[in-house]
Design a protein around this nucleic acid. Structure first.
Lengths: 339, 339
DNA sequence: CAAATAAGCCAAACCGTTTTAGCATTTAAA
DNA sequence: TTTAAATGCTAAAACGGTTTGGCTTATTTG
């Protein structure tokens, strides 16, 4: 059962390819093809289950109806949820999505972007490693439609949909302060991401605003690839003199999980001894002992807006850049010591 | 900065397209193209950053170097992890992956498969809704390369990579029995999935083997779309007379989470009053109160094997079907009452 | 009734590759 | 010296669509 092509239909029906193509694309009336001819074509197409070859169509039209999604890691629930949202919306609008995970590697990111371009995707949605200014600049110079999500390059003007990281962390720290903590630590990732940088700033600002010292050891930065390995020492150092914190803000959900794991191993009582707040959530955070207070990122809105902006840019060449910093929400649970 | 094509190179260099294509595909020596000519071509290609248009190439070769991944939901961590693995392996071998989530809808699945075929993907990896025999049969009849994961159709011979669901649940139930429970319940999804059916069988068999009654209300089946809504009643009915279970096996990770949530609301002590085991895991299961005993599915192996089998089938038309039922593992934690 | 208009369809170019068969020319073998 | 083989490259078809300009007829219009 070989695939039926326009040529096949053309030969069987003795009607030219052009007419058939027009009709099947719904331009039959516009092009004044008679009802009978259209009937015949539609009938034959249904019966033989004709489906256009999208590669051929793409080659011809210069549009592939695919959008590329480049993210750090599809198995991270945060990105997976964004991906789901993007996919859903995109598919309603006739687009498929190709995805790839960079694993936070700049080289991979470069390769992946290139490979998507080779595939002729119509546009890109990228949660960049932020080590990759070159590629972003190149895309921009080529006027290729793309929108950054979650992470943007502050010194490059592009479309982006991010969250107010600073503000989210401010709320997290304030929450701990409200529950009476003064010696508050901040566990984060090694710098390199603007989002992470912003979160740190949010922490520092808030501490400063309340005139709380940021003592040695209050700020800890882990390497993305060695979180499991390094977390024990980090937590140990934070819960004893001289650091001895009363509260910790974790700058990502997985840091919070790993950190809590260690706190429990050390029999530190949360939140009595150390209260914690997570920036970012996990689906079981409400079931954990204690339930984790967390800053919620508006995942759905990120996905929706990214697609909206991208599609607008596909239709219209020269739009102004759109830059969104979505506000976070916060769910207060026991871990922050408020109750 | 328009894209450079073979034609452009051909015109600039006054060398035929064919030669250039050959050379850039590494067949220069084989086709006895002189060193100098090859040099010239490579040099020009680098300088002008030539990248082949994959649509055109695909049209010409009949291969797109894309594989399609059809799953219920990318934001479910189980599938996301499989997706990550598939993507990683596939990309090493030169393939990109297009994914789509069916949301357990048969219609969506049909659409998605069709759309991937239109896109000329070279092969498919499908975690089917299992309501879709027609499509699978069609793919099979067309001899299109595909492998089913997580769920297969028992009465259709295909490639598949699944897990031993029955065996996994047997272990789960045995574990509860070991910890002294006799009145054991099973919370699952409405039938429709073979995997779910197998899990139920595993439960029934084990209960039977130990001559434990499966009382009214011991087996509860929820609708995928109404888990949050229906779980409260389900759990309520199980913890009081006449059902009043001492242990529950949840047939998926998200059921376990939702179920535990209700148990806690009702102030049922886990595992003292009711011990629980989850089939399938979540990353925070070790942090939950109590930590959840769970049957672990070999996610990485599922992904790896699926890609392996698929690629073998891409190379070789007529291979025997491969069918794998991978064994599960189990992590024992407090929730099952063993400690 | 001639000219203009509309109706209905098609030929052919094009998108950017791959691939096969074969053409000159030079070199080696008989 | 003639023939055979090797060298180095190319023309052209094919993949399966889209799209534009235009060619016939029939129908109006003046």
């Amino acid at each position: 059962m070989k695939k039926v092509t326009l040529n096949d239909i053309s030969e069987s029906l003795k009607i030219s390819k052009s007419t058939i193509s027009l009709v099947l694309n719904g331009r039959g009336d516009e092009k004044r093809v008679s009802k009978e001819t259209q009937e015949k074509i539609f009938k034959f197409a249904k019966e033989h289950n004709y489906k256009a070859n999208q590669l051929a169509r793409g080659l011809s039209t210069g549009k592939s109806d695919m959008i590329g999604l480049v993210i750090p890691n599809i198995s991270d629930n945060f990105y997976a949820r964004i991906a789901r949202r993007i996919e859903k919306k995109a598919s309603r609008l006739g687009y498929n999505v190709v995805f790839s995970s960079t694993g936070e590697s700049k080289i991979r990111e470069t390769e992946l972007i290139q490979s998507m371009l080779d595939r002729q995707v119509d546009g890109l949605i990228i949660a960049s490693t932020q080590k990759n200014k070159d590629d972003i600049l190149r895309l921009k110079k080529q006027n290729f439609p793309f929108v950054l999500i979650d992470r943007h390059y502050p010194d490059i003007e592009t479309n982006y949909v991010c969250v107010n990281n600073n503000g989210g962390v401010v709320r997290a720290v304030e929450q701990l302060i409200n529950s009476g903590r003064k010696r508050i630590g901040f566990v984060s990732l090694k710098p390199g991401l603007q989002a992470i940088e912003d979160r740190l700033q949010g922490y520092l600002e808030t501490m400063n605003k309340h005139s709380f010292d940021v003592k040695d050891g209050f700020v800890q930065e882990l390497d993305y690839d060695n979180i499991e390995k390094d977390m024990p020492d980090v937590i140990k150092s934070m819960v004893k003199f001289p650091a001895s914190v009363e509260g910790i803000v974790f700058s990502t959900h997985f840091l919070a999980a790993a950190g809590l794991r260690e706190l429990k191993k050390l029999n530190v009582r949360v939140p009595v001894d150390v209260a914690i707040v997570s920036f970012g959530q996990m689906s079981a955070f409400d079931l954990i002992d204690p339930p984790i207070t967390s800053v919620i990122q508006p995942v759905d809105e990120i996905g929706d807006n990214a697609v909206d902006i991208l599609l607008k840019n596909l239709e219209n060449e020269d739009l102004d850049f759109e830059q969104m910093n979505l506000e976070t929400d916060m769910i207060i649970r026991k871990s922050c010591g408020t109750f």
